[in-house]
């Protein structure tokens, strides 16, 4: 069997989640190749060549792939898919965007967000915001899969795969990139952080998220938010943890002023240790918390920062 893994990157860095996606590919079993599609992305190709379990890195370095537009990337991946039994990407915004397009062009359905591999055609994935876990068999001859990286442990990076340059430039010509407004933060990525502290509606406003910053700095934590806090306009959506936001599974997750709606729990309940700080002792977040503190967050947060 042969597997093509799509490398998630920003033209300069290979995203760490890709290492977990390769672990999923290894669980399926077979010869694993990695595709790096981008522009001026040689550094990514070098990093990809070191990923354990990958025997070959295919590099499509062309202006058509600079922003990894779904229209252009899906044409490339669909063409390459002819040589593979499985095509796999990480379930992050790039993979979620273009992979279903690949599936449709190949006339197969996609198996999204898998968290475990049962066999080469049978996979486990959460449904209903993680309130049910489905075991699904793909009946299509080619499998198109996205991987939820929290389900797998990263592979090591001491390999040395061959790098092969592809001479491809599939440009659909019906979409173009206008601009990016990227959030700049000194803190670790939400998806990669080993500690996450999140605020909810109880924070009352965006200004009060500063109370989390001091603690995050002391712990080297990323800062997240519940959908309620995003909906209320306290913080931008890229901080949202939940069913429709980011799925995280850090070693420590601290939920502050978050009631614990099922949509939020879906994004964090696989964390190793969960702490909840909420003044409402009946809040559902306490049902999943390892350590709960019933307290007013405006008293608790400064005290916590002082004692760390």
């Amino acid at each position: 069997m042969s597997i093509l893994v799509y490398a998630e990157h920003d033209n300069s860095e290979l995203k760490a989640d890709t290492l977990k996606t390769v672990a999923a590919a290894q669980a399926i079993g077979g010869d694993i190749h990695m595709l790096v599609a981008g522009s001026n992305c040689q550094a990514v190709a070098e990093a990809a060549s070191k990923v354990n379990g990958v025997s070959k890195v295919l590099v499509a370095d062309n202006a058509a792939y600079e922003h990894q537009l779904a229209e252009n990337v899906s044409l490339l991946v669909t063409e390459l898919a002819a040589d593979y039994d499985h095509v796999i990407a990480t379930a992050l915004t790039t993979g979620k965007n273009f992979m279903p397009r690949v599936a449709a062009l190949l006339d197969v359905t996609q198996i999204s967000d898998i968290i475990a591999v049962e066999s080469s055609d049978t996979f486990v994935r959460p449904i209903y915001a993680g309130n049910a876990i489905a075991t699904v068999q793909s009946l299509d001859s080619k499998k198109v899969i996205t991987v939820r990286s929290t389900g797998f442990d990263a592979v090591a990076t001491d390999g040395s795969a061959e790098i092969v340059a592809l001479d491809k430039a599939t440009d659909a010509g019906n979409s173009s990139h206008v601009n990016d407004e990227l959030s700049v933060s000194e803190r670790p990525d939400l998806g990669a952080a080993s500690i996450v502290i999140s605020g909810g509606r109880g924070m009352q406003n965006g200004e009060n998220f500063k109370l989390l910053e001091g603690i995050a700095d002391k712990l080297g934590a990323a800062i997240g938010a519940s959908r309620a806090a995003v909906d209320a306009g306290f913080v931008p959506n890229d901080m949202q943890v939940g069913q429709t936001g980011k799925i995280v599974a850090p070693d420590l997750y601290i939920a502050v002023g978050i009631s614990g709606a099922i949509q939020h729990l879906a994004g964090m309940k696989d964390s190793k240790v969960i702490v909840a700080i909420n003044k409402d002792p009946e809040a559902p977040i306490f049902q999943v918390a390892d350590y709960g503190l019933v307290a007013d967050l405006f008293d608790a947060l400064p005290e916590l920062e002082g004692k760390l």
């Binding site: 993680g130 049910a132 876990i133 009946l139 999943v288 390892d290 350590y291 709960g292 608790a300 760390l308």
Partner: peptide, 29 residues
């Protein structure tokens, strides 16, 4: 194109404890 083999409830988290103070929380962590 797919065959739903089974659907199971997610693993339950073990019930946690309520701590009384920030000091106790930091000590436990």
């Amino acid at each position: 194109r797919t065959n739903l083999i089974k659907v199971t409830p997610p693993a339950e988290r073990k019930a946690g404890i309520v701590v009384e103070s920030i000091d106790e929380l930091v000590e436990k962590l």
